[in-house]
Design a protein around this nucleic acid. Structure first.
Length: 284
DNA sequence: CTTATGACCTGCAAGC
DNA sequence: TGCTTGCAGGTCATAA
């Protein structure tokens, strides 16, 4: 569910409310939430006890909390994951999966995840291109908000693929952070149909597409991300407002902001793609 | 090697 | 009122 802007909102919340605190207790309430932690719940909880969270970081849709042990608590929110700061003693959420308590007796950190596609893991930190990353994130490309993001190299990586342009946009090893919403919004702004072949895109058009993706994600971040329901919220449970500014995603039948023709929905990779039938004509 | 497909989950809305 | 079907912000293992 959450894409780069939503994950960044959560990262900022963790930086404010979790960084600097020492973990005293970890409860794993659902084993699936730590399925990527090979050694299991006991090991996960036991090794975190007594460690201090030093910072909250992000690449693409991956989020992690650096620890004073040199390791990191890696998180991916999947389709429905939330990181919530909640007062101690507050009722457990229906889909509460993991709880962290701290030595300051302050509010708990909770990982809540309805669909359980997300999860946490304790990961070693490795050096990749002179940057420290949790090992499972080593294959993820830099995202457009990374100060060292190289847009020219990213465009060439997209154009090297022999596939449809939207598949390439969603490939987290080429550019990270873009998901179904912001891919559709970027394609709408660039007037490209999702099925356009990447290897026939000019460098200029590819560059324009990536600039649109970057712009739309920055605009979304400024208003707290995109929330359609209570599933995407910041660490205090509040929704973002970018759903009001969407031009394509979820807008089937609504008039396109440019030409007024109704937005169409097409099946794409077991989900949907939304586009303008006039401004984004199907290739061939 | 590359690219495409379905599995993994729970819950909600729409249609009958 | 039920029941069934389709759909939802993602990633990964496996097939081709």
């Amino acid at each position: 569910m959450p894409e780069l802007p939503e994950v960044e909102v959560v990262r900022r919340g963790l930086q404010s409310h979790a960084a600097g605190r020492v973990i005293t207790e970890v409860d794993v309430l659902h084993p699936r939430a730590i399925r990527r932690h090979e050694l299991g719940s006991q090991d996960f909880a036991g090794r975190l006890k007594g460690l201090r969270i030093t910072a909250a970081r992000r690449r693409g849709k991956y989020l992690w909390m650096e620890l004073d042990s040199g390791e990191a608590v890696l998180a991916h929110l999947g389709m429905s994951g939330q990181m919530l700061i909640r007062p101690e003693g507050a009722d457990d959420e229906k889909h509460l999966r993991i709880r962290f308590r701290f030595d300051d007796g302050g509010p708990e950190l909770r990982f809540v995840d309805q669909r359980t596609f997300g999860g946490l893991a304790l990961a070693d930190v490795v050096e990749v291109d002179r940057v420290s990353l949790p090992a499972p994130v080593a294959h993820i490309a830099r995202d457009p908000m990374d100060p060292d993001f190289d847009p020219v190299a990213a465009v060439e990586a997209l154009r090297r693929k022999r596939t449809e342009v939207k598949r390439a946009l969603l490939d987290q090893t080429l550019v990270s952070g873009i998901g179904n919403i912001y891919a559709d919004e970027a394609l709408w702004r660039a007037r490209l149909h999702w099925a356009r072949p990447t290897d026939k895109l000019t460098s200029a058009k590819g560059g324009e597409l990536l600039r649109h993706a970057t712009d739309v994600m920055n605009e979304a971040l400024e208003v707290g991300g995109t929330s359609f329901d209570a599933l995407y919220v910041n660490v205090n449970g509040q929704s973002g407002y970018f759903d009001r500014s969407l031009n394509a995603y979820g807008q089937e039948g609504e008039p396109s902001g440019r030409c007024g023709r109704p937005i169409r929905r097409e099946p794409f990779m077991n989900r949907s793609s939304f586009s303008c039938p006039v401004c984004q004509p199907k290739p061939r």
